[in-house]
Amino acid sequence: MSLQLTLIGIGTGNPEHLTLQAIRAMNAQDVILIPRKGTGKDDLAQLRLDMCDELVTNHTTRIVEFELPVRNEATPDYRQRVDDWHDAIATVWQDAIDSHGSAKKVALLVWGDPSLYDSTLRIAARIKPAPQITVIPGITSLQALTAAHATVLNEIGAPFIVTTGRRLREEGWPTGVDTVAVMLDAGSAFEAISPDGVYIWWGAYVGMKEQIVIEGPLSEVAEQITQTRARARTDHGWIMDIYLLRKL
């Protein structure tokens, strides 16, 4: 029997975001792997552990923690940095799986959803021999953001783009759209665009008890968001934020 690897979307830190499908899948596993991301990010592992404590009632399911490799930022080419990092993560996964050789059903709890700005599926494709992969969808940070602000992602009949902070900073406002959702921003990339006529819905730790949300004309709230973000990162040691920009 080949390895069955299940990638379970767990939302953005709120156990109530997990679907019934996700909970049933968690309880069907031999092993659930929990990554640790190093000093200052223990909360991320602890949230996953808390979910398992609350929702996994199958006493034969083992919870196994492992250390996640750190990306080498010294490599000049961005794509190469990411590829090398994914190779290293796949090796760690492989070692964790091999150390529990009797396990035929293994799961990873994926922040948000495995299909949106997440590399879990690309990393899983590196496992040898190739496992049978099942994906359980989860609530994304984009959904949690729009819900927190009680707003909608798109205008009627209008397109939108989901991009990264790095691309917004380097390339500016994407052509052909008035609505841009920005993920994976290392820090206030909205400062690189003209704020004229732009409205922002920003959120950090969306869906979690630490949730912070700010909205308003970008020209009026950009500095407030930047300062709030810096304080939150200092307070928690890490930050996950996302925002929606729209030309009005």
Rank of each mutant, 00 (worst) to 15 (best):
R24Q: 13
A25W: 08
A25L: 10
M26C: 10
M26G: 11
M26L: 12
M26I: 10
M26K: 09
M26E: 09
N27C: 15
Q29M: 08
Q29K: 07
Q29N: 09
D30C: 10
D30K: 08
V31E: 08
V31S: 09
V31G: 09
I32W: 01
I32Y: 02
L33R: 03
L33Q: 03
P35C: 03
P35A: 02
R36K: 07
K37H: 12
G40C: 03
K41F: 10
D42M: 10
D42E: 13
D42G: 11
D43W: 11
L44P: 00
L44I: 01
L47D: 12
R48F: 06
L49E: 01
D50W: 05
M51S: 00
M51K: 00
M51P: 01
C52P: 04
C52F: 02
E54N: 13
L55P: 15
V56P: 11
V56I: 11
T57V: 14
N58K: 04
N58Y: 06
H59K: 15
T60Y: 14
T60Q: 15
T60V: 12
T61E: 03
T61M: 04
R62M: 06
R62V: 06
R62G: 05
R62Y: 05
I63E: 03
I63R: 05
E65V: 05
F66W: 05
E67I: 11
E67P: 13
E67Y: 10
L68N: 06
L68E: 05
P69I: 12
V70C: 00
R71G: 09
E73I: 00
A74K: 14
A74N: 13
T75G: 01
T75H: 05
T75I: 12
D77W: 01
D77P: 07
Y78A: 09
Y78I: 14
R79G: 10
R79T: 12
R81G: 01
V82W: 02
V82L: 02
D83A: 01
D83Q: 03
D84A: 14
D84Y: 10
D87K: 10
A88M: 06
I89Q: 03
I89L: 06
T91P: 15
T91A: 10
T91D: 12
T91C: 11
V92L: 08
W93R: 09
Q94I: 00
Q94W: 04
Q94C: 04
D95N: 15
D95S: 15
A96Y: 07
A96T: 10
A96V: 11
I97R: 00
I97C: 02
D98V: 15
S99Y: 12
S99R: 14
A103K: 01
A103C: 02
A103W: 02
K104D: 11
K105P: 15
K105D: 14
K105A: 13
A107M: 10
L109I: 11
L109D: 06
W111M: 03
W111I: 11
D113C: 07
P114I: 08
S115Q: 04
S115F: 07
